[in-house]
């Protein structure tokens, strides 16, 4: 069964400048999918449409058969590319917040991951560094047993050691029956964990897509090299 189906999705921010035009995709369950493309091709817009932050101008999005709404949001764990919590809270208050609203939130896992990183649950979010805040956010997202994880640039702006930790946290803590969609520019770091990939061009055109391992075997190139070839300026 497909966890995500997008049918003829159109979205534009300005008239005559569509970010996504008749975009179609079906993503099955239990896969880690890399959504890769240049800046402005619609990756983040697609993430926002699926998570319910934006409304499509036309078309249909189904998450496990549910249209975008209250039910689909309970199935999705979304990590945006920016920090989204109130700095007036403490880490433990944020954990309580997630526990309150998401029935699939694993509080024990969240505290274990925080302890692994040496993050004091009673620390104020205001006092944490940018990188630590991003890790806290990732821990909260990955502590849910969601059906679909949407991770928008999870490793951008962090050092290489932190990137490795983030990727291992993603792979080590997600529900194996779930699907993860990752958008990133740092393909070299991410491609080792990807099952499938989608190269997205401007207007939401899918230029190349498939199984990551098969693509590497057939072309003899890494995904990063394929990306550079497809999107050569």
């Amino acid at each position: 069964m497909n966890i995500l189906e997008c049918k003829n999705i159109c979205k534009s921010y300005k008239k005559n400048f569509p970010v996504l035009y008749n975009f179609n995709i079906e993503i099955p369950t239990g896969r880690i999918v890399g959504l890769l493309g240049p800046n402005g091709c619609g990756k983040s817009t697609l993430m926002k449409l699926i998570s319910g932050l934006l409304q499509a101008d036309s078309g249909e999005i189904l998450i496990s058969g549910n249209p975008v709404g209250e039910k689909s949001k309970a199935l999705i764990s979304y990590l945006p590319e920016r920090t989204y919590f109130s700095s007036n809270m403490r880490v433990s208050e944020l954990v309580d917040y997630f526990e309150d609203f998401y029935s699939d939130f694993d509080t024990q896992r969240a505290y274990k991951l925080l302890a692994d990183l040496g993050i004091d649950p009673e620390a104020s979010l205001k006092a944490l560094s940018k990188g630590t805040k991003e890790k806290v956010q990732l821990i909260l997202v990955m502590s849910r047993n969601a059906r679909l994880y949407l991770l928008d640039e999870p490793i951008a702006g962090v050092d290489p050691a932190a990137r490795e930790y983030i990727l291992s946290t993603i792979v080590g803590n997600y529900n194996p029956d779930a699907t993860i969609i990752i958008t990133t520019h740092l393909i070299t770091d991410v491609e080792q964990v990807l099952d499938d990939f989608v190269f997205l061009g401007f207007g939401g055109r899918i230029l190349l897509a498939g199984n990551a391992e098969e693509a590497r075997n057939e072309s003899g190139k890494s995904l990063d090299e394929l990306f550079k070839e497809v999107f050569r300026c």
Binding site: S51, G52, L53, G69, E70, K71, K73, A74, I76, Y78, P80, R82, T83, Y84, F85, S86, F101, Y102
Partner: peptide, 13 residues
């Protein structure tokens, strides 16, 4: 603001 990314993705109407 950025908090809206959390608020509007909560499973609420």
């Amino acid at each position: 603001t950025d908090e809206g990314y959390l608020t509007f993705t909560l499973p609420v109407k």
